[in-house]
Amino acid sequence: MKIVVIGAGAMGLRYGVLLQEAGNDVQFVDTWEPNVEAIRKNHGVEVTRDGEDPHRVEIKVCYPEEYHDQPELVIFFIKDMHTIEIMERCKHFIGKNTYVLTNQNGYGGAEDIAQFVDKKRIIAGTAMIATVMKGPGKVDFIGKRGTGHVNIVKMEGEPDAFIYKVADEMEKALMHPAVRTDYKGTVWTKLVFNSVVNTLCTLMNIKMGQFAAYKNAEVMSQRLIYEAYDALDAEGIQMEMGRDELVEQVMYVSKVANPLHYPSMHQDMTTNRPTEVDYINGAVVRLAEKHGLQAPYHSLLVDLVHLKEASRQYQNE
């Protein structure tokens, strides 16, 4: 399959490298100049797994304006708030038959992509895969090979032959895909998961396992998840799992699956990039307000993350 990955960051590289190793023709498109130039200079990206065994993987990377082919599949891994800007720069190589896959963290990215691509050709979903960008041209894959899984779902319409073709290639890459049928239920389940661990680990500057070790971690998770589910119930969204089941998953993933992992929002905070909190906890707040509900826990977390972002200017004083 001819694939273009837009965004050669942590997750873009994880998906692209794995699919390339599975035999696909993969090209990377990125807008972060230090990253593009480092990959070009080194003729590839330096990959480690859990910080060990550094090795170079040869990949092709270019800026959006330099790519003029038409891929079968575009994999989009850009921060939610930059979706429209980057799609404008990439729309010239997204043909009428090209599918776009996005596994962005928050809610709203696929809706922005739909301004450029028919919803029937947008594949959304979630990724339970941990990856860390260590610097320009350097990425760390967290977990043993084959660890983690992904869910993919068409934004509109029933699963078609192409989404199953994508799933087949992902399975060859040991990404363990599951094809889902409920777009909103799939995306919101991961979003609510992220609204707990991403945000709290970022605010406290801790790893997921350190969060889970706190005596009231489960109670905090329950408060946030229940508040989100109240809004989701009002909207009529059928989640993939119940409230308490998601609380259990948050604790299990934090304690057992990825205890040494800093979530992506933490990585953004520590590298002075804007976070996606408005597309995660902020999405819960907006959904609650739509139905005349309050979401005070999530609203407070949004303000606290933005306060921490603003406080970075004082770090050297």
Rank of each mutant, 00 (worst) to 15 (best):
G236N: 03
Y183W: 12
E289V: 00
V277A: 00
L300M: 15
V61D: 02
I142Y: 04
H149L: 12
Y252S: 07
V284S: 03
A22K: 09
Q315I: 13
F211L: 12
V256F: 12
Y252R: 11
D69E: 15
M241I: 15
G16K: 03
V29M: 00
M241N: 02
A161T: 15
W32A: 03
P259N: 11
Q115I: 12
I129L: 06
H82T: 10
A22P: 06
V5D: 00
L287R: 05
R49Q: 15
M239E: 06
L101C: 10
V253G: 02
T199H: 10
Y252T: 13
Y214C: 13
A231F: 10
I280T: 00
D140W: 04
P296L: 11
V100S: 07
P54Q: 12
Q20I: 01
N272I: 11
M269R: 05
Q222N: 13
T83R: 05
N316L: 01
A130R: 00
D160H: 15
E235Q: 14
P263K: 09
Q294W: 09
I84V: 14
Y226I: 02
N24P: 08
M170E: 12
D118M: 08
H261R: 05
T275V: 01
H43R: 15
Q222M: 15
E37Q: 14
E72V: 08
E276I: 11
E248M: 09
E227Q: 04
I163R: 04
N281Y: 04
D80W: 12
W32C: 07
T186G: 07
Q238Y: 07
H82M: 12
M155L: 02
L301V: 06
G148V: 05
F162T: 09
E218V: 13
T98Q: 05
E65A: 06
I39W: 03
F77K: 10
K308M: 08
A178Y: 06
A283F: 02
C90T: 09
T271V: 08
I142N: 01
A217H: 03
V36I: 15
V247I: 13
Y279N: 09
Y262I: 09
V139Y: 09
G157P: 00
R89T: 11
Y279Q: 09
G9I: 02
V132C: 02
V117L: 00
G282A: 01
P136G: 09
T126A: 13
V196T: 08
G137Y: 04
H92R: 08
I129T: 09
Y67P: 00
D160E: 15
A130S: 08
N24G: 10
M241K: 15
M81F: 13
K2C: 03
V302I: 07
E46D: 15
N205F: 12
G9L: 06
G236V: 13
M133P: 04
V45A: 14
K41I: 03
L19G: 06
C90G: 01
D230I: 14
E58N: 11
R243C: 10
S264E: 01
Y279L: 02
